[in-house]
Amino acid sequence: MSDKLMKLTLKIWRQKDADSPGKMESYQVEGISEHMSFLEMLDVFNEQQINQGNEPVAFDHDCREGICGMCSLQINGEPHGPDRGVTTCQLHMRMFNDGDTITIEPFRAKAFPVIKDLVVDRTSFDRIQHAGGFISVNTSGNTQDANNIPVEKENADKAFDAATCIGCGACVAACKNASAMLFVSAKVSQFALLPQGKIEAKDRVLNMVHQMDEEGFGNCSNTGACEVECPKGISLENIARMNREYLKASLTKE
């Protein structure tokens, strides 16, 4: 294992605020260890920028362990960078070599407007969730224990897999159409597969799809880019399930 520190060229999208035009700028960063995460590399970069009297680059992050969905970034043309099944915070600098040029851009979608530099506004996802990503539970003191309701193993597993979506938006960023179908289908599937989700099933899929369109996401072309880039391995199967749920709901809902 080499402990040689890397020197890199970073091409980063800089944008003052939501209303300003932005542009790509070139920078140098040094002293990067291959054991650092991509975000730690950006921390080092920002420190060097601050020491030089420059404005640090803004980027989103929170848990830094791949569970919150806050980090983003289009790295060398791929959301969450070249590695598979990881978020940007889990991406290691050992994926890169000394002397590399790395392009870093915000996730691009009309429904994800840039707030500053690499930070985008993903509240469109929240509004889709509000439109139907919930179930009704009686909380008046006689709440039923969910474990008392048996669920077929296959469905329980699939619902669990769908529920691992962290809402990062990499699916939208990867899609040539900036379509949010993988995210929305994960949220629809998570409930559609469980008995607790059956009550609002029809309204849920209709309302969430409606909200997805309202937000200005594109249509799905089944390219499969989302599934490849999703850090949680959410399957295209969910999109098919959502389309089935949608078809069922729109044909039977009065």
């Binding site: 091409k11 999208w13 790509m24 289009q74 060398n76 043309g77 392009t103 851009e105 691009r108 979608a109 009309k110 429904a111 040539k176 159409n177 900036a178 379509s179 200005g216 996401f217 594109g218």
Partner: peptide, 8 residues
């Protein structure tokens, strides 16, 4: 749906 394209 993608009004600004990626540079790379």
């Amino acid at each position: 749906a993608r009004n600004i394209k990626y540079a790379q």
